[in-house]
Design a protein around this nucleic acid. Structure first.
Lengths: 154, 154
DNA sequence: TATTGTTATACTCTATAACTATA
DNA sequence: TATAGTTATAGAGTATAACAATA
């Protein structure tokens, strides 16, 4: 069942993984993005909002909504950057660390099941390879080959 | 920048790939799912609607909408299975084959750019590994480890 | 009664554009 | 003027549930 383009395969499995993560994290009342942010913060303690934007590949307005949720639940806090009062720095709270721990467990469960057929080395390989795919387009849109002649429908 | 859970990484890159595929295929007036179905049909000629459901991991109602689009553009046709008139068999039309060719090119462009940092062998590895992740949950929901005590917020 | 396909609908996610504040 | 963040809103995608036809 590998009779599928790698691009489609990646898109499809990514979608499935997102759905599973959502289900697993719904126990904690969080979405996948919320979880990813909490884990980052649990590692780093505090991150600038800009850095989160780059790391998570989300729209700025989306990030605001997520941070509002987290702050409403007292899991994170935003404070102004003293050196540039336009910028926000996001910090994790003690409650946030507890939640991050829960997220860690939930994600680990999902991963254990999803990657059950791979051994540790293969999982590491997959991780490394995935980390090396380009997330952002490097060339201008439209730079590639156009649709072949006579291909366009309608 | 591998400081990320594999699950989150897969979900995020899958999302990005889907967006890129959508952009590339919009030239042909098709969505990613439309493209994936066309490629399948270009290979097999005809597939039962049930088989498409399993292969694409989409909801039945979603598939209906996609097939309606394809049929409206005269790229595919549905006919009843003579042996069981409840079932539909989806067939590709000549126009559909042309469109599939366009899809092939567009997807190849996206893949070339996204996997530019991987050599042919690594791409094949990634493909093989991805094909071996479990798409569907094998255990009942809730069978895994629950959130650690004191972890749940609010 | 169970299965296949369909329709209608509600819900979520995401992106777009306009607005505020700081620089 | 340009940047960081926010808000409101519209659009697309997906899932849920009820329905029709066939087995």
């Amino acid at each position: 069942m590998t009779a599928d383009r790698l691009g489609f395969l990646l898109a499809r499995h990514g979608q499935t993984m997102k759905l599973r993560l959502r289900e697993a994290l719904s126990v904690c009342g969080l979405g996948p993005r919320h979880g990813a942010i909490l884990l980052r913060l649990a590692q780093a303690g505090s991150i600038s909002q800009q850095a989160l934007l780059e790391a998570l590949t989300v729209d700025a307005s989306t990030l605001v909504a997520i941070l509002n949720d987290l702050e409403r639940d007292a899991l994170t806090e935003r404070r102004r950057d003293p050196t540039d009062r336009r910028r926000h720095i996001v910090e994790i709270t003690p409650e946030g660390r507890s939640a991050a721990c829960a997220v860690e467990h939930a994600v680990a469960d999902v991963e254990r099941e999803a990657f059950a057929d791979l051994d540790a080395e293969e999982i590491a390989q997959l991780h490394t390879l995935l980390a090396r795919v380009h997330v952002r387009p490097t060339t201008e849109p439209g730079a590639g080959t156009e649709c072949a002649p006579g291909c366009a429908p309608e």
